[in-house]
Structure formats: C-alpha cells, structure tokens
Deep mutational scan, measured.
Amino acid sequence: MPVRRGHVAPQNTFLDTIIRKFEGQSRKFIIANARVENCAVIYCNDGFCELCGYSRAEVMQRPCTCDFLHGPRTQRRAAAQIAQALLGAEERKVEIAFYRKDGSCFLCLVDVVPVKNEDGAVIMFILNFEVVMEKDMVGSPAHDTNHRGPPTSWLAPGRAKTFRLKLPALLALTARESSVRSGGAGGAGAPGAVVVDVDLTPAAPSSESLALDEVTAMDNHVAGLGPAEERRALVGPGSPPRSAPGQLPSPRAHSLNPDASGSSCSLARTRSRESCASVRRASSADDIEAMRAGVLPPPPRHASTGAMHPLRSGLLNSTSDSDLVRYRTISKIPQITLNFVDLKGDPFLASPTSDREIIAPKIKERTHNVTEKVTQVLSLGADVLPEYKLQAPRIHRWTILHYSPFKAVWDWLILLLVIYTAVFTPYSAAFLLKETEEGPPATECGYACQPLAVVDLIVDIMFIVDILINFRTTYVNANEEVVSHPGRIAVHYFKGWFLIDMVAAIPFDLLI
C-alpha cells in the first residue's frame, strides 16, 4: 500500500533555474538572501570558489559584500557603492579590487542584480563577478574607477581610450546646418538635424578633445543650467548677453562664444560640459537660429522629431539603469545623424518603425519583477520565466494532490484497515475457520451469522477504491517536481505499489 509523501509542494524551481543557467555559462556568482541580516550568502558556485580561493563552506553565510576579499588596494568608495546597491532595488555595476585567499590582487567587475517577489519586494541578490585585470595590471588604489561605466561593446579594446569628441564640431553647429540641408533625401539625416562627426583615429590627448566618459557625465550638469543662461549661451556672438549692473557675465554663455574659444586653444572642462549641455537642449539648428531671432517656433511634425517616441515608452518600462547606459552608448555611435529632440514631445505622434532597438522591449506582467540581467542570462521568455513566489501546480481535472487534506485522511483510514487485516486475518484463519468446520452448517442466516465476513468484505472494497484513487494521485519525481499527468501517474504506480495493492485487495476469504 503506498505511503508516498512529498510535502515540499507547491515547489518553486526558480532558484534552481537560475543556478542551472548560470552554471551553463561558466559564470562566477553568488546568491544572497536579502531578508536576513547583512544579506548572507546562501549559494556560491564553483567558479566563484576558484576565483577567490575560498571553499564553499568558508563563503556560505558570510555577508555578500565580500568584505573578506578586501585588501589594501580595495577602494572604500567601491565598497560603499556595493553596500548601497544592496540597500536599493536597481541593478548596478561596480569595479573593485579584490584579494584572493593567497593574497593576489585582481580588479573585478561586480554586477549586483536584485530579484523581487510578486509584491515588488527584493528577496534575493545575485552578484556576478568578472575579472577585468590581474594584480600586475591593477593601478594605484588612489585612482577611482567606479565613477565610470563599463566599456562599450562596439569599441575595440585597444581603442576604448582613444575615443574623442571634438569640441569644434559642437561649436560649428550653425555652420554645418547648410551642408545638412543640402544633403536632402540623399543624406542619412532628416531636415533640421545636426550631424556630429566623431574622430576615432588614435591621437595624443589634446586640450581640444573630450573623453567619452566626460560626455556621459554632461547629463548630470544640465539641471544646474538655468533657462535664461541656456538661451544666452545659444544666442551666440551676435547678441551678447546682458548683465545687470554690478553683475558679471555668465561664464556659461561665454563658453560657447566662437570668438572667445578661437582665441585660446584650450577650454576648461567645466565650460566644455556646460556648452555641450546647452546645445543638447535645442532640438535642431533651426531652433538655434530661432533663439537668435527671439522667436522659438513649435517643433515640426516630421520623422526626426518622432524618433524618440518609442524611446520614451522603453525608458518607462525599463527595469534597470543598464538600459540608460545602453541608450547613452548607442546615442554616441560615430558617423550617424543625431536628432536633438526633447523627450517631452507630442504624445499624438505616431511611433516610426526603427531597425535598431535601443531599449529592451516591454516586459510582460509575469516578468515585471525580474531584472534585465536575470532575463538576459536565463534566456527565457515571458511565458517560461515565473515570478519568485509559491505557485500552485497546474493539475488535470479529477486529480488528487498527494499533500491535500483528503489524501491525508484517506491514508490514515487505509492504515487502520491494514492494521485490522494484519490482526484479524490470522485470527480468523486459526480459530474461526476451525469452529466453522466443526459446527453445523448455517446457510440460512447468511452474513448475519458471520459479522467478521462483512467487515472483511468492506475492507476489500476499500482497498479496491484505494487502488483507483492512487491512479489519480500526484507524486514527486526525482527532481522534486509534482507530477499531475494521468499517464505518468499510471506508469509510476504500475512500477511501484500496484502489484502489492492488488494482492492485498483480493478477497481470499470469499474465494475459499
């Protein structure tokens, strides 16, 4: 008679799926529990143990900040960024110097990925580790590398530091407007667009060049630039800015003055950032001319202004700041037409079709709590990747769950009947059967004279019903998954307890 339990259901295979997918890609990662103190490590794979030199037993239950890997060259700011990422709910990448158990130093890129439950609360953290440099290539500990984003994938490793954006290309926007319009339909740009040429040739750093990471940081200074100062900065030398009595002219307006920039070969870094931020506020060169004239017309309804409409929906549905990093990277690809469009465009503009998908598509409701890094690593669709929660398995109709209350009560009843059979069957065979043979035949009273025979008949009927119930009862397979398919249940029961239950259900007393 089957006594099969499996009270692990309803099970959740999400954690096993993450481990299996990460292991298949030869990654070095740990999984931490966000619900406990210090976000203790609950799993670390073999790749991480080989990377740091510690065994799994030495890593388990330690804080996922990996303070046991810190050393003299470990930056405090990087460690603080990892700790801050564990307090938030967004994906974050941090470069930090770690030390192995043998004392060797290596520069590592740590990717902190939160995993949320159905309520939107962070319950786990996945920390992925990628070695960037070994100890002989690690720089000085005073050099802070965590304020910069990861290198873009479309640049060669040897040319990542030679990417320079020439400031004269930004200063000569109005001069290039006529050349853009003359391109017409034969050019790649839309009317009114501004073409910015980027020099990728390796050259020595000069005062006129600005690194790509500095251009990325310009967006942080746009908020500090007032509207009046932006307007004066875009007017140009024809209309000098008016300053109040006793007030000095704005240095932001002076930063885009061609006369002032041409007199000296070098520009201050602050002026460069502010000038680029001011130019980015204009949607095209037409807006710059309109600002000089004193009238700013409404933005025209053409394809170039609607190019950012799908980007707005993608940004609203993005799951991490990696989408913004990807957008900034692609927006700086050289030799393309940049349409400086305000994100607050007309909502009635139709979304044009684009061959290049900048932001990841909208994630469906079932995966809105899973970050983009987890979705990318697992390579699963929205119909396959579940949320991290207890999910009731989908069972067929008329199927009994093996952990249901009805099955528990039924098993206790069958257990009592088995005990009765084990006690009274030998007793009936030894004593009652002998008395029946010696006594007179009682054929007239039937079952009324033999109450134990009636009980034995009921017990046999219950055993037959138990066999039928076992054909529709779920079970737990070797992978700790609840199986509810009727065919698989029948095959599993035939290979197991079916023969024993059938022999126990045969009414031998009635056959004798």
Score class of each variant (00 low, 15 high):
352 P>Q: 07
89 A>H: 07
271 R>C: 13
186 G>A: 12
343 L>H: 15
181 R>K: 13
266 S>Y: 07
223 A>T: 14
175 A>L: 01
79 A>Q: 10
13 T>W: 14
298 P>G: 12
331 S>H: 10
226 G>N: 15
57 A>P: 09
30 I>S: 01
170 L>A: 14
206 S>G: 12
33 N>I: 05
166 K>I: 01
104 S>I: 06
9 A>S: 11
4 R>Q: 12
45 N>K: 01
251 P>Q: 11
19 I>W: 01
334 P>K: 07
258 P>S: 13
48 F>K: 01
31 I>D: 01
302 H>R: 09
264 S>G: 14
93 K>S: 13
52 C>R: 01
167 L>K: 05
11 Q>E: 11
145 T>W: 09
145 T>N: 15
197 D>M: 01
249 P>S: 04
160 A>M: 11
279 V>M: 09
114 P>E: 01
201 T>C: 08
177 E>Y: 06
384 V>K: 05
153 S>E: 07
2 P>W: 06
111 D>Q: 06
221 H>L: 10
13 T>M: 14
254 H>A: 12
339 N>P: 14
97 A>D: 14
108 C>F: 01
68 F>G: 01
343 L>C: 14
18 I>A: 05
381 G>T: 05
135 K>R: 08
154 W>G: 05
245 P>V: 09
330 I>W: 05
322 S>T: 15
213 D>T: 14
271 R>W: 15
64 C>G: 14
91 E>V: 08
194 V>A: 06
241 P>V: 14
101 K>E: 01
251 P>M: 08
112 V>E: 01
328 R>T: 12
257 N>D: 14
254 H>N: 07
257 N>K: 15
68 F>D: 01
132 V>E: 07
6 G>E: 13
319 T>D: 14
2 P>S: 06
139 G>A: 15
173 L>I: 03
285 A>M: 15
365 E>Y: 11
380 L>C: 07
259 D>V: 11
134 E>Y: 06
156 A>C: 06
65 T>H: 10
132 V>R: 15
342 D>G: 15
181 R>D: 09
341 V>I: 06
228 A>E: 05
241 P>Q: 12
349 L>S: 03
111 D>P: 01
150 P>H: 09
15 L>C: 09
266 S>H: 10
136 D>M: 15
255 S>G: 07
98 F>W: 03
136 D>I: 11
278 S>F: 08
96 I>R: 01
161 K>H: 05
353 T>I: 14
70 H>Y: 10
303 A>H: 04
283 S>D: 08
146 N>V: 12
189 G>A: 06
198 V>M: 05
173 L>Y: 15
51 L>K: 01
322 S>E: 13
170 L>F: 11
242 R>S: 04
370 V>N: 04
293 A>R: 10
57 A>E: 08
319 T>F: 05
94 V>F: 01
271 R>E: 15
241 P>Y: 15
284 S>K: 07
317 N>A: 10
240 P>E: 12
124 M>K: 04
350 A>G: 10
85 A>D: 01
117 N>G: 15
385 L>G: 05
60 M>C: 05
26 S>G: 14
384 V>D: 08
136 D>C: 08
10 P>L: 07
73 R>Q: 13
132 V>S: 12
107 L>S: 15
188 A>P: 07
272 S>D: 06
301 R>N: 09
314 G>F: 08
156 A>V: 14
123 I>R: 11
309 H>P: 12
111 D>T: 14
110 V>R: 01
144 D>A: 12
335 Q>W: 07
102 D>F: 01
2 P>N: 06
8 V>Y: 13
117 N>M: 15
12 N>Q: 15
8 V>W: 14
180 V>Q: 03
199 D>P: 15
193 A>N: 15
76 R>G: 13
55 S>V: 01
78 A>R: 11
258 P>T: 11
243 S>R: 14
83 A>R: 09
67 D>C: 05
178 S>Y: 06
325 V>C: 08
379 S>A: 05
339 N>Y: 01
194 V>M: 01
299 P>L: 03
373 K>N: 01
356 R>T: 10
183 G>K: 11
355 D>P: 12
367 T>G: 15
190 A>S: 05
171 L>T: 15
108 C>G: 05
122 V>L: 12
323 D>G: 12
47 G>Y: 06
257 N>Q: 04
377 V>T: 03
45 N>V: 01
356 R>W: 01
37 E>D: 08
314 G>C: 10
32 A>Q: 01
334 P>H: 04
37 E>K: 07
286 D>M: 06
102 D>K: 01
41 V>T: 08
342 D>A: 04
85 A>V: 01
22 F>V: 07
193 A>D: 12
268 A>I: 14
248 L>H: 06
105 C>M: 15
162 T>M: 15
358 I>M: 09
308 M>R: 07
344 K>C: 10
21 K>H: 11
208 E>Q: 09
3 V>M: 12
245 P>D: 14
87 L>V: 14
166 K>Y: 01
206 S>T: 15
381 G>D: 09
285 A>L: 12
277 A>T: 14
332 K>V: 01
238 G>I: 11
25 Q>A: 11
102 D>N: 09
2 P>V: 06
130 E>M: 09
76 R>M: 10
304 S>R: 07
299 P>H: 07
341 V>M: 07
206 S>I: 12
307 A>L: 12
213 D>Y: 03
339 N>L: 01
154 W>V: 06
95 E>M: 13
17 T>G: 13
276 C>T: 11
278 S>L: 11
348 F>C: 08
164 R>L: 07
172 A>D: 14
379 S>L: 07
10 P>M: 15
35 R>G: 11
269 R>W: 07
349 L>H: 08
260 A>Q: 11
38 N>E: 14
113 V>S: 14
156 A>I: 11
90 E>P: 03
358 I>H: 11
365 E>W: 15
347 P>L: 05
379 S>H: 11
175 A>V: 01
87 L>K: 12
60 M>R: 01
146 N>H: 05
324 L>E: 13
242 R>E: 07
315 L>Q: 07
28 K>V: 12
186 G>M: 05
205 P>W: 04
96 I>C: 06
273 R>F: 11
290 A>Q: 04
279 V>Y: 13
366 R>K: 07
111 D>R: 07
84 Q>M: 14
262 G>M: 14
261 S>G: 11
252 R>T: 15
331 S>N: 09
348 F>G: 13
62 R>E: 08
257 N>I: 07
25 Q>S: 10
97 A>W: 14
185 A>L: 08
261 S>N: 05
183 G>T: 09
160 A>I: 14
107 L>F: 14
359 I>Y: 11
239 S>V: 07
347 P>Y: 08
366 R>G: 05
30 I>K: 01
23 E>Q: 06
6 G>A: 11
217 A>H: 13
351 S>D: 06
35 R>A: 06
35 R>M: 11
270 T>D: 12
183 G>W: 06
180 V>R: 15
32 A>G: 09
374 V>L: 12
138 V>F: 05
144 D>C: 09
375 T>H: 05
80 A>T: 11
306 G>R: 12
102 D>L: 01
265 C>Y: 14
120 G>N: 15
327 Y>N: 12
313 S>F: 09
135 K>H: 13
368 H>S: 12
130 E>H: 07
313 S>N: 10
10 P>D: 14
346 D>R: 08
364 K>I: 07
22 F>L: 14
200 L>P: 15
245 P>Y: 14
171 L>F: 15
56 R>M: 03
41 V>G: 01
325 V>T: 14
179 S>H: 10
111 D>H: 14
117 N>C: 15
46 D>A: 10
298 P>Y: 01
335 Q>N: 15
354 S>M: 10
300 P>A: 11
162 T>S: 08
386 P>G: 13
